[in-house]
Amino acid sequence: MKQGERKYWLDRPGRAGKVFWALCVLCGLLFFADALYEKHPTFAVEAWFGFYAIFGFFFSVGLVLSAKELRRLLMRKEDYYD
């Protein structure tokens, strides 16, 4: 941050946390939105309450953690091919 630069909303302490908690609230609302409409599932799993939410969360976490492990196998120095 340079001197005299405009202050940004996101730069103030605690703001990143606020964004995080806002996202949590949004997710909570979306999760319970499943109660508000009638489902027409093609596959049985789609009828589960919050199926897409659970699927999205756990597979994303799984994706990142497994990709992180893959680094052990795949990661080399930046100049590997030079």
Binding site: C27, L30, Y37, G56, V61, V64
Partner: peptide, 23 residues
């Protein structure tokens, strides 16, 4: 309605996963 909510759930919770892992 079902498609919109399903998509939003999938994306919002994927974003939540990212946020939790970063935080």
């Amino acid at each position: 309605v079902g498609h919109v909510i399903a998509s939003l759930q999938l994306l919002a919770f994927a974003a939540l996963a990212f946020a939790v892992l970063i935080r």
